[in-house]
Design a protein around this nucleic acid. Structure first.
Lengths: 341, 341
DNA sequence: CATTTTTTGATTTACGTACATCAGAAATCT
DNA sequence: AGATTTCTGATGTACGTAAATCAAAAAATG
């Protein structure tokens, strides 16, 4: 049997009220007594029963998710996952608010964060855009004692408590490794399509991709990055121009969300299947492209997992409880035509 | 606010005791009254507060894991994951027993299951070996109302309630797809090293592998399966003989646990890096082989995830609660040299 | 109709914690 | 020393459910 507050009170020779005061850091206890009680707590290895505590407090966890709006399918999937989680709110004692902000817009993101009333907030999860204003907004929340978690794209060294998402450098390395091996020492050029170099995940993927390309696949020349702002039209146009301009393009790494445009550009030129493409995020279009042989591989992160993980992490941080690390590591999924779920 | 038993009692015009009797299927309530109360429960959308109920009952979940013993590194990892979970027992209200049985031994497994006292058992998770005796033992547990879950290797159509593990056909297909693309239309032979065709996961992986090989990579000839019983020495000897006998072996799919033996056989002949190898399970040896370029890819299932999932599933089944499906889907991890964690 | 059996209500205790109140003890100050 | 402030104890209520007891009411039985 695990020890209870009663056991502590008895062993420390104090009343239940005093134990409660110590446990919940309420004032009105002599330092000396606090120490004695804390020693007993440690010696008994007491851990509060969170379920009982939450019951007594009628605890709910008010959480906020901030996600970029727009046509980006992955973000829409993330939003759906948040709604999904919301349906479990009564069981999980959460109260989830979802905010959407214009993509790649530091001011809007910072503004949304600053607009949050900090009162009783148990956690904030945001898809981060790199900027000083956003860092300041995160710092404000942190100062107010609100656990902040970054989602999908990190903001390292900011005062976020945790990052929920894949290792994007590793994702880029994986993409390069797959592409390089699929092209097995055939010479040629490789193009990279990104959304924007303002979001960290894209920067990191590119970094990882370049690392491996340069080190292992010297037969391939990596062309300058195309920034399609994660919009289908822009991506189609830019990729089209590149394809018309360059000769010997044998591979493309699409590390952002412009997949629909990319597919159109390839199809329009009858290059589908002739160029090896590795893309990110298993959206409907990407899935179709895989099945059709337009994409060779898709690297994915599971939005449902990420949202559930973010919720677990925010609750744990709010409660000051340990995380099960392995459980919160978001993994890189690799899909080929033959392992589509 | 979600409705409580008090709300039900009030609205149904009965006492709390009667509500309790209905909710917990105790006798002593007229059929007519039961109906009325149940209607109110449905109309209010009442859901019992599991945390409060477990608190009142001082509920613990006695669980049993049955895992094959022996040198199989993956199974040892699984065992470690169970011990890890055990450390969280007090928080998760579990009481976990771990049994090990000789591998590939139907009788031993069935015996272990039959030896379990069913009293109050909240769930059993086993790594299944295909056999009528095992099916019977599973049926006995099911009859006694104990939720049974298969782990890693399934026993479909038996009375297990859930399977926790990867889709092994998809894994085999993935392996074939990777191997085929890495060898990009080079002609040659491909060998398959399995543990035993008595365990379903190995059978299914082979099936998926053959499907894709036959359909997409006709340039490659798949050699008859080598059964190494997941033992290093046997695997080394059998693979060695195969390598000495066959010419033009360009790829190997190791779908079982004989990786150490496989690596030795390749090294001894200086074939490391010359033959593309796709293997299963990211053990220490496999990791090293990946880093050294002996293995091209490793397909993995995360033992920690599987154990945690099995526990969640058994608890949910014992409580008659819905699962979050997406959360319990075990994913196929693909590791290349460049995305090793 | 009386008797037995079944059903129901009322009430209480428990689970482990949170939190509030009030009185009394101990320490600190004047 | 008396007054004030700071601690501490005792006690009770609450959270939502489980479970037990006993009495009363209703129904079924003879």
């Amino acid at each position: 049997m695990r020890p209870t507050v009663h056991d502590i009170a008895e062993k420390a020779g104090v009343s239940l009220a005093t134990v409660d005061r110590v446990l919940n850091r309420r004032k009105g206890v002599r330092a000396e007594t606090v120490l004695r009680v804390e020693q007993v707590i440690a010696s008994l290895g007491y851990q509060r029963d969170l379920a009982a505590a939450n019951l007594a407090k009628s605890r709910v966890y008010p959480l906020v998710f901030v996600v970029p709006e727009g046509e980006n399918s992955f973000m829409r999937g993330l939003e759906m996952a948040v709604h999904e989680a919301r349906r479990r709110s009564s069981v999980e004692r959460t109260d989830i608010k979802l905010l959407t902000v214009p993509p790649f817009d530091e001011g809007a993101l910072a503004g949304a964060l600053d607009g949050l009333s900090v009162e009783g907030l148990a956690g904030v999860a945001l898809v981060a855009t790199e900027s000083p204003a956003v860092r300041r907004s995160v710092a404000r929340l942190a100062d107010a004692g609100v656990p902040v978690v970054t989602l999908v794209s990190d903001l390292p060294s900011a005062r976020r408590r945790h990052y929920v998402g894949i290792d994007n450098v590793a994702a880029g390395r994986t993409a390069a490794s797959l592409l390089g091996r699929f092209l097995s020492h055939r010479p040629g050029k490789v193009a990279v399509l990104a959304g924007s170099m303002l979001v960290r995940d894209h920067v990191e993927r590119r970094l990882g991709f370049d690392q491996v390309m340069r080190a292992e696949f010297t037969n391939l020349e990596v062309l300058p990055v195309i920034e399609g702002r994660d919009e289908a039209e822009a991506a189609e146009r830019l990729v089209g121009e590149m394809l018309d301009r360059e000769r010997d393009v044998v591979g493309i790494y699409s590390l952002g969300a412009g997949n629909r445009g990319l597919i159109s550009a390839l199809m329009a030129r009858g290059l589908n299947g002739k160029i090896e493409v590795v893309a990110h995020e298993l959206t409907d279009h990407a899935r179709q492209a895989l099945a059709d042989g337009v994409f060779a591989a898709v690297i994915n992160q599971d939005a449902g997992h990420e949202v559930r993980s973010a919720i677990r992490v925010m609750k744990a941080l709010a409660d000051g409880v340990d995380l099960v690390d392995g459980q919160e590591r978001i993994r890189i999924d690799i899909f080929l035509r033959d392992n589509l779920p």
